[in-house]
Design a protein around this nucleic acid. Structure first.
Lengths: 224, 224, 224, 224
DNA sequence: GATGAATGAGGGTTCATTCAT
DNA sequence: CATGAATGAACCCTCATTCAT
């Protein structure tokens, strides 16, 4: 496999299942690439549509048209609408997951690390409003999409776990007041989620940057 | 009109149009009461269904069956599904609105008032998860339900305004650190909303009470 | 219930389930009648279509148009296409069943009774070619319609049982040669079915009457 | 062309069109053979599938998978699904035709010849239930597959003609009662077909052998 | 007002056929 | 020739809305 192709595969995240299927097909490199791009195109447009109209309000026709793909093609890449929905949520999760978890739980300067982290995460939350709305949708309808919800929930737990570790270290080092780390973590992720909902139509506004110190408060910093 | 009937009408609130229709109808007091109750029944069950299944996922048949009302009856009380949805969200809003805004923005002891308020609101948010999920749904789909969203947004602004007033007073009285009151208010409502989403399956758990001091932090209290 | 209505119900055979549903509905006598007729109309046209095009080759649209009923109406009378198919086969079975089993297994003159019976059954098989084709279809696809097939099979067993009894009596009375009664019965019903298939485009032709003595042979009559 | 290849071609019989195409292709002997086998494989599996699921219920994908042939290959051997269906029925007909017509219409001992013939044909009917179900399917849907039906009908006429000849000879020689030979023949083929339907799930059971004397009766033997 | 049968547009999905590789 | 992705018409079924009773 060429390096170029390999890079592309990385960008489609970890859709290992289809990945395996596609690379095992007896077709040319070129064709393989096209298929991967087509699949990605469908998923990308699906995020917007599912986020805006919900699962039932989004039709395959809408997706096919927005992705400039024939109606039937959607079904050559995804067996059912439900699977497409799941892939739409989970494929992107992997990408966001990485950048959201990108902080050091054992830093020398905890306060600095927290501030950097908040800055980074606030930025992500302000930029990717569409995807986060989709996440909210899944959470709100978790009874209907239990498996998809479960994966999101696992990521949430992982994030809170890592946050908790960071907080514990800060407390040990005397940089943070003694508060239950898990509650702090939960409040922080709740705040991010809630902000995204409350400022639903303000992507990338200045407001987001201003929020950082307020979020900081939740961690119980000894000097602010 | 009897006092009893009048009280009932208050609880169904703003459905002025139907209200007018019902009271102008040449029918007996008794029948009027029955109609009002029937309408309320439909709205109550609609909350659960719309919250769980979304607008498109909820059918009139489902509502009629859950409310133990004939299929046709739903359409004698609400012209269209969309109107029923709007009424479902907005009728309840007024009821919740009152208890959520139930705090004094000019108290003698601001810290105490804030703590009481948080206690009260956390309680509400923990108990009425279904309705709040519905609110989240409308917010997430605000392009589709602009009018309904607008009314929710107005309430949100009203709430933040009143919170802001309380915070300002606290700062004047030296009980709170100087922070932008509007940002604090926004963070606080975001936190409530976010908590509701993150602890979606934990209505009325002990956890909610523990959250109070963490929420308190956002207001920048001078001693905690 | 009026006598008229009762008679009509008899003609729709034993579709007890729907019968109960319809008569328990809080609607007028007149409306009830219309519904029963509409249902019957759909079933009648379904026989022809399913018989000619098979299950997959027949569309709900075709049925609705032939029965002069709206597309949606088909689904107010039958939950699914599969159920409609089952009802199409089984509702008619009851009607035919009665006239096919209309012979006396303990007659004084067995030979005469057999001849009368064959005459009668040959007539039925010659006239109702469409329905019999449908029966053949179900038998040929019994793995796909196991329940429907099972009911047809039970009727077949019942018929062979009664034939067997008649044959036994004929043998006891010395009017028939000693042959295994069950085999004779099976051969006879097979002959009828086979004839229906072989003379598929010759309903009510003269040929059918001529067949009687040949069918008679199977019973092993002592003088012909 | 090698003798071996020629023999193979005979077994795939009338597919003259493709036959011409294949032998006129500028390819190696070896490749030619492979193609012929592949075509046969498709047809063989098609019998089972069309017989069990009917024309509409059978998909090209099902056939390709069962025949372990690529989806696209089916269309390189057969222009349309309809042509494949026709070939499936007719190619096999020639094979069965030969063994079913394998009796002498002018034997010395007619009764013996008839018994041998019935034995042989009953055996065939008991063994090849799948193909016969397919025949029944075509007969039942003759309006939809007129050409295919027509070829089956011609074979049926040919069979009845030859049977008729045998019966006439038997009557001339005083071994059979005087009965209309054509009716007898029709009854006999009907009996075979009917038995196949009635004992649809009993391939090769003992029952079939027992049937012989009962079938014999139809021919009007003077002593049995 | 109460009821639920009637309607048909629109949903997800399947599949024969085409065609580029 | 072999392959399977691409296509969209047509399938069954659902459901908001209408309307006769």
């Amino acid at each position: 496999m060429t390096a170029k192709c390999f890079m592309l595969l990385l960008t489609i995240d970890r859709s290992i299942i289809l990945f395996k299927e596609i690379i095992s097909m007896p077709i040319s490199e070129n064709q393989r690439l096209k298929m991967i791009q087509k699949r990605k195109r469908i998923l990308d447009e699906s995020i917007d549509l599912f986020a805006e109209h919900g699962y039932d309000g989004t039709t395959i026709k809408m997706i096919a048209e927005k992705a400039e793909v024939s109606f039937g093609s959607v079904f050559t890449y995804f067996e059912t609408k439900e699977q497409l929905f799941h892939a739409t949520v989970i494929d992107s999760l992997d990408a966001y997951s990485e950048i959201i978890l990108d902080f050091n739980p054992n830093p020398e300067n905890v306060l600095q690390e927290i501030e950097n982290m908040i800055n980074n995460q606030i930025k992500i939350f302000s930029e990717f409003s569409t995807y986060l709305l989709l996440v909210v949708y899944v959470v709100g309808h978790h009874h209907r999409f239990p498996e998809t919800f479960n994966e999101l929930d696992q990521f949430h737990d992982k994030l809170r776990g890592k946050l908790s570790e960071l907080i514990k270290n800060g407390q040990k080092m005397g940089q943070l007041f003694k508060l239950d780390p898990m509650y702090v973590a939960s409040c922080y992720t709740s705040l991010l989620m809630g902000l995204r909902l409350n400022f639903i139509d303000e992507p990338e506004s200045e407001m987001w940057k201003e929020i950082v110190p307020y979020a900081m408060q939740l961690f119980g910093p000894k000097k602010v």
